[in-house]
Amino acid sequence: MNLSVNRRHFMGLMGAAASMPLMERAGFAADPFTFQASWINDAEFAGYFLAADKGYYADEGLELTYLSGGPDVIPESTIIAGKADLTLTTPDTTIKAIVDQGAPFKIIGAQYQKNPIGIVSLAKNPINEPKDLIGKTLAVPPVNVISVEAMLKISGVDRNEVNIVPYAYDPTPLIKGEIDASLDFTTNVPFTIEQAGEKATSFLLYDYGYTTFNDTVVVTEETLASKRKEIVAFLKASRMGWEENFKDPAASPPQFADSWFKGTGRSVENEIYFNTAQKPLMEAEGGIFAMSEEAIEANIKALAEVGISAKREHFDTTILEEL
């Protein structure tokens, strides 16, 4: 490891709040393209990191700028403001924005075929299905409350019988038993709980009727028209990155420990767990990012349960066809 990081290099690392223009190969006039991730650097984006490190974007003629996400980064806002060309979102908020506010978004792909959010609880006090939540305290990020309410409704549980409190990123209250369950990425939290010496139980909202994608790939209609070539290139390279990544989910996270994952404060073991757990949720017959007609139909149906009237036209599968 190089300890004598000089200052310019360090500023470069931090540069523009982690915007990382990735190297272009000599001789190419690469097209600039900016990708806004939906969260901080973790295994959720391993495929993109691998594609970048392997030079897949450069091979496709892209000069990619990767913007990390965070709680205050609202991905949809970033593409409206023109700070990024493409982003990952939760389908419910994106479609709600299209329907309610006429936002010019198109969903052109889906990273997760099955939404990884689920109800996580301790094995010693297990919540195995929605009915078990009756009379219990459930911590939910305020954004996801409507998703939980939909799942409860589909499962015939009265919402008023569940005590819903805010969830603020830290699983400690669950581990200590202050709450009975929380809504989180099932690909991630169970690892932490096991690290703390407890066993975790979880189920996906997806498996109880809330059949949505997650990390839907979203662009504005304008970008879709003007940067079609770049979008296709980005998805092609990213798909290659993900496929490479899933050949051995334990292999790639250690490669990022001193680069992409540096400074996140998370352990490599955690990322390996995450990467392994997300594989079955992402893989699809049509390849990574695929959106089958049945899956789109299922999304529309689930969203209708929470009062969001999604339509087929909000999803655009033509890009996928070009991959």
Partner: peptide, 9 residues
């Protein structure tokens, strides 16, 4: 660092 560490309990 904090946001990365919060989920670690």
């Amino acid at each position: 660092y904090l946001i990365g560490s919060l989920g670690r309990a």
